[in-house]
Design a protein around this nucleic acid. Structure first.
Lengths: 105, 105
DNA sequence: ACGATATACTTCGCGTTATGATGTATTGCG
DNA sequence: CGCAATACATCATAACGCGAAGTATATCGT
């Protein structure tokens, strides 16, 4: 998938991945894999960004003697998803502009 | 509209804007305005990029004593639009992942 | 006649972002 | 014991959108 198309989708994908229940880095990557691939460096960058924006909170917990950082979505995070749904209407209208009248759809 | 969401959309929007007939900078911005706003600096950057990628060709012509650069889409440019349509299927599946099961759609 | 606005294109620098490379550390399997 | 998987972190890089500023001409109102 095109590199650029991902942008604007990734943040909201990560939020969606932790929406139902708290999750952690490695699991998020695996859960998102069917939809979108992202590297570890990309994910941890996104998580930091979302944390700074208060869209999620972090909690460190031990699991099998290993530390895990569990991420929990906040109200603002949920709000971001709602906002995304609104923006999506504009995206659809752009899509329709691009595919219309091209003579071979 | 979110800055990041535009990426991956803008290139293909510009190609779509010159698809039916050759166009020039100012007109492209006006034609795209109902769908997506972009500044002149953004557009001319994109046009240069698309030209370098051979997705369009440029021709300078005089109009009312002023110079205009007319952009013409190439086969590769049209191919990019087709590619975009394919990528769109992945985008839709991402969108559905994001909006599903959020308890308040 | 003159200033404002629209047309038209260009360049520079900045901030945001995705990613590969690299590193650290533990668990579990063959 | 070695190797893959789990788990998180940092750094440098390149791409990209955009505001700001500049240049130049046409048009329109007063």
């Amino acid at each position: 998938m095109d590199n650029q198309l991902k942008r604007g989708l990734l943040d909201v994908c990560v939020l969606a991945a932790i929406r139902k229940e708290d999750s952690y880095g490695y699991k998020i990557i695996k859960d998102l894999k069917p939809y979108v691939e992202l590297s570890e460096s990309t994910l941890y960058t996104i998580l930091k960004r979302l944390e700074a924006a208060k869209m999620l909170t972090v909690r460190t917990a031990e699991h099998d003697g290993r530390l895990r950082k569990y991420y929990h979505i906040t109200g603002q995070g949920l709000g971001r998803i709602e906002e995304f749904k609104t923006e999506w209407k504009a995206v659809i209208s752009i899509y329709q502009f691009v595919v219309k009248e091209d003579g071979n759809e």
